[in-house]
Every structure is written in C-alpha cells, then in structure tokens.
C-alpha cells in the first residue's frame, strides 16, 4: 500500500524555527545567523559589530561550536550577554538548539541577537533557525574560488562579508572574479570588504545591518 506524505524532510527543524521566529517577532529581536569556515573571523566580526552598534542596540550573542566555551567568554569580556551552544560533534546549529539557548537570555532586553554558527560552509545552509537574515563571511586567505566549491551558502546569504581584506595584496585573491561569481549566484547580496580586527570597512556592514533592523521594526509595526 502506498502512503502519500508530501512532507518537508526537515519538518521538525522548520516547525521549531517558525516557533523561534514568532518569539523573536513578539519580543522585537532581530536575529542574524553568521556562517563561515573555521578561522574566517566570525567571532572577530561579532566583536567589530558589537563595537559599531552597541550604542544603538542592545546586543546578545549565541555561540555555536562543537566544543569549548572560548568564544562565549571572549564576548562576555565585552559586557555582552553570550550563550555557548556545544553541538558535541554536530556540524551545524538546528532550531531546537537555538530554542534552548534563547531560554537563557532575557529577550525583552535585546534588540539584536547574533548567532555564530558552527564553522562550516556546507551544513548550516539547509537549516533555518528562525533568523531574520543569514550572512556568510569569507576571508581572503580562503581564496576567491570558494563560491564555485560551496555555492549554496552564497546563494542563501543575504549579505557576504569579505573579511581580512587588509591581506588582499598578500594572497592570490582575484576580487573581481569573486564578486562576479557571487553576483551570478546571488545578485541581491551585497559584498562588504572589511577587516574585522582592524576596523576598516566595518562601518558599511554595520550600516547595512542597522538598516535591516530598522526595516524589520517598521514592517512589524505595520502588521
């Protein structure tokens, strides 16, 4: 006998993500999911973003790693609430992990929640967490050919940060080629060349993010 199911494979993850979404909307929290390889500068980007926007928004961070609390502690040193998720081997975050992490935060006191996904260019792409935007970071030393090798992450990102841009002269990084492939895969995503640790170019990224946060406030108050 045949049973017709026509169901999303990741139905459970997506249902929980939609619950997260409703909670974030209700509490007026804008959520950004940062995805990148290990070492691309996710934590440095978060610290640079905090420095740029902490006067305007109340920020909190969820740190996803396979193990350790190193990243959450780095964030807390800056006086920002941070929750560490240890996936214990899983290569990406899922919405139930976000749900548990969020229960440790006071959402009433947060405007911007930055989620640092596990360092990986493949797995995080299929898992909606309930975020407002997925953003991917590629660092210059990883090479301009990455969009050819990992297209999905570039396709779903709403913005691409090209980090460690201060080293562009030291590597054989063809920026024109990189921008053109990203544009072909995803013509909507702006590319922000920046150095998270030195601060160059962080302003443009922070402004884009602030604009998205303001847009989401306006659209939710219109509902």
């Amino acid at each position: 006998m045949e049973i017709d199911l026509s169901k999303r494979i990741l139905d459970r993850n997506e249902r929980l993500a939609e619950e997260n979404r409703r909670l974030f909307e209700e509490k007026g929290v804008f959520v950004v999911d940062l995805m990148a390889s290990p070492g691309a500068g996710k934590t440095s980007t978060i610290l640079a973003t905090i420095a740029a926007l902490r006067d305007r928004y109340r920020i909190a961070v969820i740190e996803g790693d396979i193990a350790s609390k190193v990243d959450a502690e780095k964030i807390k040193e800056h006086g920002i609430p941070a929750v560490q998720i240890n996936t214990g081997g899983a290569c990406h975050l899922e919405s139930d992990m976000i749900q548990r992490a969020v229960s440790a935060l006071d959402l009433e006191e947060i405007d911007l929640l930055i989620v640092e996904n596990v360092g990986n260019l493949v797995c995080p792409t299929e898992f909606y967490l309930g975020e407002d935007a997925k953003v991917m970071i590629l660092s210059v030393p990883e090479g301009h050919d990455k969009p050819y090798k990992y297209p999905a992450i570039f396709e779903i990102a709403e913005a691409v940060i090209l980090n460690k841009y201060d080293t562009v002269g030291m590597f054989d990084f063809d920026e024109e080629e990189f921008r053109s492939v990203v544009r072909r895969l995803n013509h909507r995503a702006p590319v922000f060349a920046m150095s998270a640790t030195k601060g160059d170019g962080v302003g443009a990224w922070a402004e884009w993010l602030a604009l998205r946060i303001e847009d989401s406030k306006t659209s939710s108050s219109e509902e």
Binding site: M1, L5, I9, E155
Partner: peptide, 16 residues
Amino acid sequence: NIAGRELLIDSLEIDT
C-alpha cells in the same frame, strides 16, 4: 530560483 532547493518526502510503500 524556482526549483532545486527541495528536500521532500513524497511517499511510502508499506505492508500492513
């Protein structure tokens, strides 16, 4: 994009 991102369970064949 209009197709190519699907992850769906379509149907099952079972013995009852």
